[in-house]
Simulated scan of single mutants.
Amino acid sequence: MKLVVVTAGLTQPSSTRLLGDRLGEAVAQAVTQAVTGRAEAAEVETVELRDLAVDIANAFVTGFPNGRLRAAIETVTAADALIAVTPIFSGSYSGLFKSFFDVIDNTALTGKPVLIAATGGTARHSLALEHALRPLFAYLRAVVVPTAVYAASEDWGGGRDAFTDGLGERIERAAEELAALLLHRVPRRAEPEAVVPFEQQLAALRPGEPD
């Protein structure tokens, strides 16, 4: 199973990348716990949009993504599930985040499980997840999990337990939802079908012999 984290943080290090890492780790752990005794596991890969900013701008000018951007797009579209994390500016997702998904074909994410998340300086911008990010991925025909995760500056001081860290609880709940969708979507290895001899197939097509 391939899980891809798309993060649009502009600084390095960034809280956006940190949130993406925590979500990716939580989903991988939830998948592992759900498939105990089976061979499935989640491989997590991160796409840093900060490193692709110039490539994305050039794609808008030329109409074609270069090799590095094309590879990132293929990574995202081939994933079994996505975690999409953006900083919130002026009550909405960042321009870099939106531009990346603008260069992806609007049918490429059809049916793909997606967990949306965002970071910001104040909790007042948390509704951007519902009025900006969720409609964006609905337009792209993705399947967005019910729990969206927002991390304000004050959320990073928690002790990562159920009593002092609301962020940790939201991450765990969202991770379990995405893991459930991921496991439901990824097809299990089918048993090989029995081969029916040609003579037997032909005999089934002949009219019955008279008594």
Rank of each mutant, 00 (worst) to 15 (best):
M1W: 04
L3T: 01
L3W: 00
V4R: 00
T7I: 02
G9H: 07
G9S: 09
L10E: 14
P13R: 08
T16A: 08
R17K: 06
L18V: 02
L19P: 08
R22Y: 02
R22I: 00
E25H: 05
A26P: 08
A26Q: 01
A28K: 12
T32F: 12
Q33G: 10
Q33S: 09
V35D: 04
T36S: 13
T36W: 12
T36L: 12
A42S: 08
A42W: 07
E43V: 09
V44N: 11
V47M: 09
L49S: 09
R50M: 10
A53T: 06
A53I: 08
A53E: 07
V54H: 10
V54E: 11
A59Q: 07
A59E: 11
V61W: 06
V61F: 10
T62E: 06
G63F: 09
G67V: 07
R68A: 14
L69W: 10
A71R: 15
A72D: 06
T75D: 07
D80R: 11
L82D: 04
L82N: 02
I83A: 01
I83D: 00
V85L: 05
P87N: 06
I88F: 10
I88W: 09
S92Q: 15
Y93E: 05
S94H: 04
S99W: 07
D102E: 11
D102L: 03
D102N: 07
N106Y: 11
T110W: 11
V114C: 11
V114Y: 12
A117L: 04
A117T: 02
A117V: 03
A118K: 07
T119A: 08
G120A: 12
T122P: 08
A123G: 13
S126N: 09
L127A: 13
A128G: 15
H131K: 13
H131R: 13
A132P: 10
A132T: 14
L133H: 14
L133N: 11
R134S: 10
L136Q: 14
A138R: 07
Y139R: 11
L140A: 08
R141E: 13
V144E: 13
V144I: 12
V145A: 10
P146K: 00
T147A: 03
V149E: 00
Y150C: 00
A151F: 02
S153C: 10
D155K: 01
D155V: 02
D155Q: 02
W156D: 04
G158K: 03
R160Y: 01
R160L: 03
T164M: 05
G166L: 07
L167W: 00
L167S: 02
L167P: 04
G168M: 02
G168E: 01
R170D: 00
R173L: 01
R173S: 00
L178W: 05
A180F: 03
A180T: 09
L182W: 02
L183S: 03
L183E: 03
H184R: 12
R185N: 08
R185T: 10
V186P: 01
V186K: 04
R188Y: 10
R188S: 15
R189D: 14
E193C: 08
A194F: 13
V196H: 03
V196W: 09
P197M: 10
F198A: 15
Q200D: 15
Q200L: 15
L202K: 06
L202M: 14
A203L: 14
A204P: 02
R206D: 06
R206H: 06
